[in-house]
Write a protein that binds this DNA or RNA. Sequence first.
DNA 1: TTAACACTGTGATTTTTTTCACAGCAGAGC
DNA 2: GCTCTGCTGTGAAAAAAATCACAGTGTTAA
Lengths: 214, 214
Amino acid sequence: MPERTSISKRVIERLSEYRSTLDEFDTTETRSIYSHDLAKLCGVTAAQVRRDLMTIGFSGSSAKGYDVSELQQTVGDFLGFGEERRMALVGIGHLGRALLDFFADRNPKLILCAAFDINEMRINRVIHGVRCYAVSQLTEVAKEKRANMGIITVPDAAAQDVATALVEGGVSGLLNFAPVQLRVPNHVFVENLNISTVLEKVAYFAGQSGDKER
Amino acid sequence: MPERTSISKRVIERLSEYRSTLDEFDTTETRSIYSHDLAKLCGVTAAQVRRDLMTIGFSGSSAKGYDVSELQQTVGDFLGFGEERRMALVGIGHLGRALLDFFADRNPKLILCAAFDINEMRINRVIHGVRCYAVSQLTEVAKEKRANMGIITVPDAAAQDVATALVEGGVSGLLNFAPVQLRVPNHVFVENLNISTVLEKVAYFAGQSGDKER
DNA sequence: TTAACACTGTGATTTTTTTCACAGCAGAGC
DNA sequence: GCTCTGCTGTGAAAAAAATCACAGTGTTAA
């Protein structure tokens, strides 16, 4: 039973950041950490760290701060690292490839279980241990591989169909790189990541010589 | 003279989204649009759209809504599309390549003026019209090319040095894909984009069968 | 000309998020 | 054991963001 009251995206993001920051530490050497220090490493305030940890019911000690490995464990559990996360990647352009690389290295908690592309050349290839299938088989293969998340890096025009097929295949979370508003049943969580938007934001704030990150 | 009171990242993101959504329209056919409709296309509420446009001082008419091309123009101006934005891309792995592709197609407002890599093989190649230089020349070339933004897609350990070199080269905005907290002078705006964090967020909310995008 | 309508602009309100600030506690030093 | 220190946990306050709700307005139709 994960949580009582619903927790905002922002908090989840920070928790994820705290946890991965902690991965850098050698827990035999650094046993514990103060909210202050973790905050600095993550670019947030100490009060924010304490509040977030309070939100998930994690306590430290007043003299030593937070126990590093305990914190990793607790946040990991909270984020659902216990359960299996199986991702389907659709679209193996450069961005898709970048994601394949990415998961070859790190993040052992999220498993890429299948990749898909429309290009004949790529079908049936195995990249970093992940087999590539034809998009036409999306729904079947997603079901068969028990994917529960999908990553969409296809051209804009194809994104909606891909999303629909993924959902039909049993996926309940999507990361969508296409600048398109996906229509999905509302038990499905969609996160849109539009690179243009991000860059335009950077451009805007880079313009203001007056600063302030936030 | 762009704005009076400082505007939040969130608003800028939405404005960017409104603008690019409007690009889909043929302005000779669709002259104007209601807050309601634009809202639906962008996945926000109508009140939000009106509030955001009010924030930048843009007015519509009560019967016709907002004039599409005027709105595009105004938002574009506001976001600084008038001025030149010259970006340096550092790291030409798959992700870097994806970004190069990306800018070959769209976004004529942001110019990729140089790319950098440490790998000999890639140096001096020209990809989509962008020349690739050695990272060792980062500062000089950035200056020479008058870059004002940087995109960092290098391995974690190299990110800080790259950031420092870019800033020295005159860059005042960074998009950083490395999961590292960059230290930069505070006239420099940094946006961190950590793919793991994004995916962990999707994983978390995909877990909750109880939904609610936000 | 008037009435009905559907929209915008916006003050007021609500909700959410962040920060403040301090009581209370645990360990270190004496 | 007592005191001093600097931390956490957390109510309370502040700030920021989103939503509500409605007056005012241009448009269309009768």
